[in-house]
Design a protein around this nucleic acid. Structure first.
Lengths: 174, 174
DNA sequence: TTCTGATATTTCACAGATGAAATATTCAGC
DNA sequence: GCTGAATATTTCATCTGTGAAATATCAGAA
């Protein structure tokens, strides 16, 4: 019932704005709904892969290996998944225990490891693909090619803004 | 550095698609970036309120009370914050300990409580408002009114789709 | 070579969040 | 009124995620 939250968000924003006139109502609503949508999309992904016994990060780790020549070091995976090294250790332990990835020492740098997807892991990724295409891709069924392009443009503008704005905020504090 | 992830997402999607032709590349990219944006927006919110010693849910609980006549029961707050009752107990403990909210028995139903924002809590919400307006509202500075309207429309379409699609997926499994 | 500093991974202690059991209260039907 | 089902909140066990310390290795300067 994600959509049912939208009315509440709008109403709350209006009530807050009536007491804090400086608030930017439309932007606040957009921001809050974008947060909510992100959370709900991740939840949907989790629901779709739960039958396979995977959680989001476990699946994405497999997917990265799958799209990455089959292996990567934990450090690289930290960057690609934006997760802490500690959490990456935990996740690869889980996947290793299930036989979906293996860990081996890096041939040239003994500090590092090489995490590799196994045939079973690759099969799992391939098996889940139709389910995800159906379950997530279908959300965009009423988007035209132009809609997709515009929506992507908005998302990217906000991502860039997130890169830019913090500096200006910091600058004010100096 | 949120935006730097975008190139990786695009490349990974292309490589996956080359091995799984049924994949819907554009939709996958949109979906992944929308998840990422949601996460990054929440992170930004957390950074902005961290100086006040608050985390996202603590702030949003205060904001809901602020926009809601000053008080609500834990059960209502669970719904509005989409959080478990257990977590709501934890959060109100924290806020109560800091004197930002109070908890009192409900006058008519002794199972319930009434969580109320204190003057200190209200002051904190008001004090944070300019900072949030600047830090989050500014992300939309290059959006025209028409952009905001279109973007909202896309977000709402996806929220509605999240309500619709799961039923169809379930239906297939039956 | 050897020392120093940087890098990679794991371990540990702890914060954040959840589901399920426990507790207390209300409400409906008899 | 009583009994049993439903509701509201807290407690408890557990899972997920993080920062910081510990460990091991590498790379460069003297």
């Amino acid at each position: 019932m994600p959509y049912s939250q939208v009315a509440q968000i709008r109403e709350a924003a209006q009530r807050i704005a009536s007491r804090c006139p400086q608030m930017r109502v439309e932007e606040s609503i957009l921001c809050r709904i974008a947060m909510l949508l992100g959370r709900d999309l991740v939840s949907r992904l989790n629901e779709l892969i739960a039958p396979a016994g995977l959680a989001e990060l476990e699946y994405r780790l497999l997917l990265i290996l799958f799209s990455h020549g089959g292996s990567a070091s934990p450090g690289e995976l930290c960057g690609l998944l934006t997760q802490s090294p500690a959490n990456l250790t935990r996740i690869s332990n889980l996947l290793t225990a299930r036989g979906l990835v293996t860990r081996a020492p890096h041939p040239e740098d003994r500090r590092r490891l090489v995490v590799s997807i196994t045939p079973a892991g690759e099969k799992l990724v391939r098996d889940l693909m139709p389910c995800l295409t159906a379950g997530l891709g279908a959300l965009f069924d009423d988007f035209t090619a132009e809609d997709r392009q515009r929506f992507l443009d908005y998302l990217l503008r906000l991502m860039r803004a997130l890169d830019e704005v913090p500096r200006s905020t910091h600058a004010e504090q100096v």
